[in-house]
Design a protein around this nucleic acid. Structure first.
Lengths: 343, 343
DNA sequence: TTGAAAGCGCTAACAT
DNA sequence: ATGTTAGCGCTTTCAA
C-alpha cells in the first residue's frame, strides 16, 4: 500500500540537480546523503526525503574515484589446468560463498574473475592495477604459483587460498595438504592395505602436496607398501569414463584408493559399484575436503576435513589488514581425518 | 627468462605522468593506450612500450566515470527464503559459472551480490542505481518476484533466471517448471505409483510451479492418486535430518517421491538406504535439474533436465540487447525427463 | 597528428 | 551550518 508520489517524474541525474531542487548547494547534499552531522538535522532529513522520493542515489563510480576507495575486492578463480569445470567444484564454490558473506558483511563488493591464463602471464598484473580493486583474493592457486609470487612482490593486498611453501612472498591461507595426504594414506595402510592408488591431477600444487604426504606415509610403512598415481581431472565432464578406465587398468592387488577430492571419491564409488566391487570390503576409499556430500553417499565417505568457513574469514581479515598497510603472515590449518564408512 | 628493466622504478601514477615522461600531452597518451589510429604509429608504439615498461595501466574507475560505461554486470543471488546454503546449490553455481564465461567472453566484469532481503525491499533499487552497473542478472527469483517486478518497471537492463508468469514485466529465462513437475509425476504415476510425495520448499516460486505441475498430473490420473507436500529446505545443513523425519512421518502407502532438486534427491536416496528401503523397488525417486551428480549416485537418478548452459547464454545475450536499448522477450525452455535407475 | 581545455559526478578543504 | 572551489584520472571535442 505504499503510495508513490510521482508529481515530477523527471529523473534526478546527479547531486547538483537535487541540490537545485532542495535550494542548497551540492556540497550540502553530498554531506546530507552521507549522513554527516555537519549539516543541520532538519535540512539533512529534508534532503534525504527528497532523494528517496525521486529514487536518487549518488553515483558510486564518481564517489569512488574521488575518495580513492573503490570498495571492491576482486575474487579470482584461476583455471590454469582444468579449463572447464573448476568453478563448479563444490569446494571452491563453498569457499566463494563464505568469502561473499565475509566481504558483504564488511561492506565490500565482490568482483568475480574466472581466468584461464593460457599463454599469458599478465592476467594478474592487469587485474591488480586496473584501479578498480582495493584487494584481491585468489580461490586456489592452480598452476599459477609463480605468477602470484611475482605480482605479490609489489602488490601487497593479495591473499590466496592454497599452499604455503617455505620462503614464499604471498600470503596464503590453506590446509596442510601434505599432512592431509599423509593422514589419508596412514588410515588405509593401518587397515593392512599396502597397495594404494591416488586419484588426482597433480598439476594443481595443492593436489601434488596431498600425494607427497601419501607417499611419505607409504615410505614409512616400509617394504611392500606403495602408491600408484592416476591423473584424474577435477572436471566432471568425462570424469566417470576416466575413472572407469583407470579402475580397469589398475593392478588388482590395490585395495585402497585416496582421491584428491570428495567429488572424485563419489564418482569412484559409483564406478566401483558398477564393477561389482564393494566398498570398503574390496576397496577402501578416502576422499578430501569433507564436503556435506560426503555424508550423503552410500557408503558415507571417509574424508580429510578442511575448515572452509574459518579459512574464508582468515583470508578476508588478512586482506583487510593488508589494505590497511599491515603485514600479515600465512596460515596453515590442520586437516582432520573423518572416518565414516568407506574406509 | 624475461629480463625486466627497472631503470626507473618510480611508479607512474597516472596518464599525465606518463605523458610528461614521453614528452607528449595526456590526450595523446590516452589515445595511444586506447590503440586509436588518430595517433602516429611510431609515437603510439613508443608510448605503449613506455607504459609496459613501467607497468602502467589507466585507472578504470576514472575511465569508466568519464565514458559512462562501467563494463560491469551485477550478478545477484537472492536468498529470500533459505538464508544460508543457496549459494552452494550446485545448480545455481553451475549457472554462475556459465554466466561468468559468457560475460568474460564479451569483455564484461562481473560483480557478485549475495543478498538476503530480510525486511527491506530496497536492496534491488539500491543496487541498480549505484551507478556501478550496466546491467543486472538475477540467479533465481527466490521469493522476490514482486521486488523484481517493481524495479524492472523502470530499470530495463535486467534479466532473471526463473519463472515467467503471464503479464510479468521483467525479462526471464528459465525452464517450464510446471511441465517439468508434470513430467516427473506422470512418470511415477505411469508405474502404478498413485500415492506420491513432493520434497521441496514452495516459497521459492520455481519450486511451487514444479509442485503445481505434479498436482496437475495427479489430478489427471484420477481418483486414488494424490501427492503430499513436505517442505524440505534447499539448505544442506540439516537437510538430512529433515528428510529422515519426513520419511518417518510419511504415509507408508507412498511409493513415489518427486524432489525439487537433485541435491534433495541425493540426500533422500541416502536416508532411504538408511531405513533399508530399496530404490526404486520400494520407493521410486525423481529429481530435478539433471546435474552431473545425478549420474554419480547409486542408483543413478532419474531427473528433469534443465538447459543451464544455453540458459546462461540466452540471459547474457538478452541483457546486452537491453543495454543497447532493445526490448527482449522472456524465454521458457522445455524440460526433459531423463530416465535412469531411480524411477 | 597533437595539444588545450572542459567535464564525467562526486567529496573535502577552505572559507564564510 | 552551509557555500565555494578544486580536484580524483580519464576521455573527447575543438583548435591548431
Amino acid at each position: 500500500m505504499a503510495t508513490e508520489s510521482r508529481d515530477k517524474p523527471r529523473r534526478i541525474r546527479n547531486i547538483s540537480e537535487l541540490a537545485k531542487l532542495a535550494g542548497v548547494s551540492a556540497g550540502t547534499v553530498s554531506r546530507a546523503l552521507a549522513g554527516k552531522d555537519l549539516v543541520n538535522r532538519e535540512t539533512r532529513e529534508r534532503i534525504q526525503a527528497l532523494a528517496r522520493e525521486h529514487g536518487f542515489r549518488p553515483n558510486q563510480m564518481a564517489s569512488r574515484l574521488r575518495t580513492g576507495q573503490t570498495g571492491v575486492i576482486g575474487v579470482v578463480i584461476p583455471l590454469g589446468h582444468d579449463k572447464r569445470q573448476h568453478i563448479s567444484d563444490p569446494f571452491f564454490m563453498t569457499l566463494l560463498g563464505y568469502l561473499a558473506d565475509a566481504l558483504t558483511e564488511r561492506g565490500y563488493d565482490l568482483m568475480l574473475s574466472r581466468v584461464i591464463p593460457e599463454h599469458n602471464d599478465e592476467w594478474l598484473e592487469r587485474l591488480v592495477d586496473s584501479g578498480m580493486l582495493e584487494g584481491v583474493l585468489m580461490i586456489g592457486q592452480s598452476d599459477q604459483f609463480a605468477v602470484i609470487e611475482q605480482v605479490a612482490a609489489h602488490y601487497r593486498p593479495l591473499v590466496a587460498w592454497g599452499v604455503h611453501q617455505p620462503g614464499q612472498v604471498h600470503c596464503a591461507v590453506g590446509t596442510d595438504n601434505f599432512t592431509g595426504g599423509k593422514l589419508a594414506a596412514q588410515h588405509l595402510l593401518a587397515q593392512g592395505r599396502k597397495r594404494l592408488a591416488f586419484f588426482g591431477d597433480i598439476r594443481g600444487i595443492e593436489i601434488e602436496e596431498r600425494l607427497k604426504g601419501a607417499r611419505a606415509a607409504v615410505a614409512e610403512a616400509g617394504t611392500g607398501a606403495n602408491i600408484e598415481l592416476f591423473a584424474t581431472p577435477l572436471a566432471t565432464d568425462n570424469m566417470a569414463e576416466r575413472i572407469a578406465a583407470d579402475l580397469e587398468a589398475m593392478d588388482p592387488a590395490i585395495t585402497g584408493i585416496f582421491t584428491a577430492s570428495d567429488v572424485i571419491a563419489m564418482a569412484t564409488l559409483r564406478q566401483l559399484h558398477e564393477r561389482g566391487q564393494q566398498v570398503p570390503r574390496d576397496i577402501a576409499l578416502v576422499g578430501f575436503d569433507d564436503l556435506p556430500l560426503a555424508t550423503q553417499t552410500v557408503p558415507q565417505l571417509s574424508s580429510i576435513h578442511q575448515q572452509i568457513g574459518r579459512g574464508a574469514e582468515e583470508m578476508v581479515s588478512r586482506l583487510l589488514r593488508r589494505i590497511a598497510g599491515e603485514e600479515t603472515d600465512s596460515l596453515v590449518m590442520e586437516p582432520r581425518l573423518i572416518v565414516r564408512e568407506s574406509a
